[in-house]
Each structure stands twice: as C-alpha cells, then as structure tokens.
Design a protein around this nucleic acid. Structure first.
Lengths: 145, 145
DNA sequence: CTATGTGCAAATCTTTTGCAGGCTA
DNA sequence: TAGCCTGCAAAAGATTTGCACATAG
C-alpha cells in the first residue's frame, strides 16, 4: 500500500537533503523530516496534508499541520512535487513530477500510480487557438469488487 | 463562453420540466428555475454551485445557496448530471452525463467540453485484480497564450 | 545579521446539516 | 394529509494567514 513510510535513518535523511538542495529549498529540520518520509526510500509517494502530518507524528517528529501545508506547497513550487486533483474535498500530492496516469480507489480514497505505459492516447486534440496544453490529467477511478 | 444562461421562457421551462420528469425528480419552483438555466437551451453546461447561484439571482429567481447545493446533488443522484473533479477547492457539475474529456482553462477556472472524439485511448490497463474501472477522467489543462 | 521558516490560533472558503415552515402528489 | 423540499443560520472540513519567535546562510 501507500502509507508505509520509511524510517528516518541516515540514508533517508541524506537522500532528503540532496533532494532539497537540488531544488534550492532551504533545509530546515521540519522540511528534512517531511522530505525523508516522502523520498527517503526512493519510492514515489502520494500523500494528503493529513496523511503526511500523521506519518510525521508517528515517526516522532513534531511538525504542525500548518507547516505541512506550507511545506507541500513549497515543494510544489520548487518543482519537487505535483498536486493531483482527484477529490474535490482534499488535495493530493505526488513525489513523481512527470505527467502520468493514476488510479483512485473509491472505497479507501487512496491514490496510486497506474502501471507505467498503461494508458496512451491515440489522439490528442490540437489545443484551441490562443491556448496551449499545460498538462493532461488522467484518473482511472476504481471500484473494489 | 459558458456562463451565458438561457432566458427562463416557456420553452426553457417545459424542457426543464420534461428533464425532471424523465428522472422522477419532483418539480418544485426552485428546481424548475435551476433546471431551465441548465438545460433550457439544449446546450451542455458546466457550473459550480456559485455560478449557478449567481445565474439564478440575476435571472430574477430567488434560490438560496444551500438549495443550489442540495439541488445539484439531487440532480447528480438522479443521474441528470455528473460531478467533475478538476479543482481541489470547488466542485464542478456537468449536464452531460457521458464520460468525456474536458478542457480546464487555468486562467479563468472555466471548464468546457473538449471537442468530441478529441481523445481516444490506444491502450487502457486491465484493472488491478479485485477492482473494476468505474470511470476514466481526462482533464486537459490549458494555459492561455 | 537578515531573510526566511515555523507554530499556533484565528480567519476564510466551500459544502453540509438541523430544523421550522411550505408545497407537491 | 404525508412526505419531501426550502431557507436560513450554524456547523463542519480543508486550507490559509497574521504574527511573534526561531533558525539557516
């Protein structure tokens, strides 16, 4: 599943530090903790502010919810993460910044990656005149049987 | 554009009445007004609770915002409309209930239909085991040049 | 040292809900 | 008449913000 976060060991922390440095984001204690949880084990991860906040708390790191929001927004602005819109009531954030399709599990409200290459377009419209395509979001909604 | 609503004339009202009757939705005054604005001119329409509320107000019909929300939800449950998720902060509703791709104009936050047949998939994944695909949402985000 | 980040609580915004009264079938 | 609908105001969530304090470069 998606919500098992890596322990905050040295490997995770140095990976996080490189991740922040690469994007010129100032490495504060809170940002390093959150970044470790996000990229510490090298896997792509999908979080909401709430799930990341809870993960930080249970890993023993004290970070306020407001800071989690600010940090996620900062990571997005720095190009480290992407905001994915699948649910009108919650924002999801993805550590993979490439444009790729997602599965959204309707029962657990979980967001995961669709297998790579799972979707391809045989046709994409020319953008209407005066506009360019900034992104194409594909969300495959799944119902558990 | 999308926000020019039809006048509430007799044609629009009777079209609205048929639309509600067809789905067994009780035709109250408020629902008829809102339905006229939505389907009165036969065009597909994309609204938020807010835009529909304002349209009702400026057409001279008094409908409370809470009722607009309740009504949109009732129309969705009756299968008359679909909720489209494009923006984490707002819900959009579409009078076209078929699964079709949308344009989302990032500058004005407007939602419109992508030209029909604009997108087709050359490949769709088999759903993961134990799940079935309930819907595939495609949103083409546009940046105005 | 200075700019930037953090934490808390309060504010904001969208959407939902409780309840008293109104209206459709 | 009975049950569903409406409107208001208040509640509920998610997210943002103001401000005093802390910290990275």
């Amino acid at each position: 599943m998606d919500q098992e976060f890596a322990p905050l060991d040295d490997t995770a922390l140095s990976k996080a530090a490189r991740w922040l440095a690469h994007a010129n984001v100032r490495p504060t204690r809170q940002r390093l903790s959150l970044a470790s949880l996000l990229v510490g084990d090298g896997q792509d991860r999908h979080v909401t502010a709430e799930t990341l906040f809870l993960a930080a708390k249970s890993s023993g790191e004290a970070v306020s919810l407001a800071t989690v929001y600010n940090t996620l927004r900062a990571f997005c602005e720095a190009g480290l993460m992407n905001e994915i819109t699948v649910d009108a009531t919650r924002s999801y954030f993805d550590t993979c910044v490439e444009d790729h399709p997602h599965y959204f599990w309707e029962d657990t409200q979980e967001l995961t990656d669709a297998p790579s290459g799972a979707v391809s377009f045989s046709r994409l419209p020319d953008p209407p005149q005066g506009a360019e395509i900034s992104r194409v979001d594909v969300v495959i909604r799944l119902r558990r049987l």
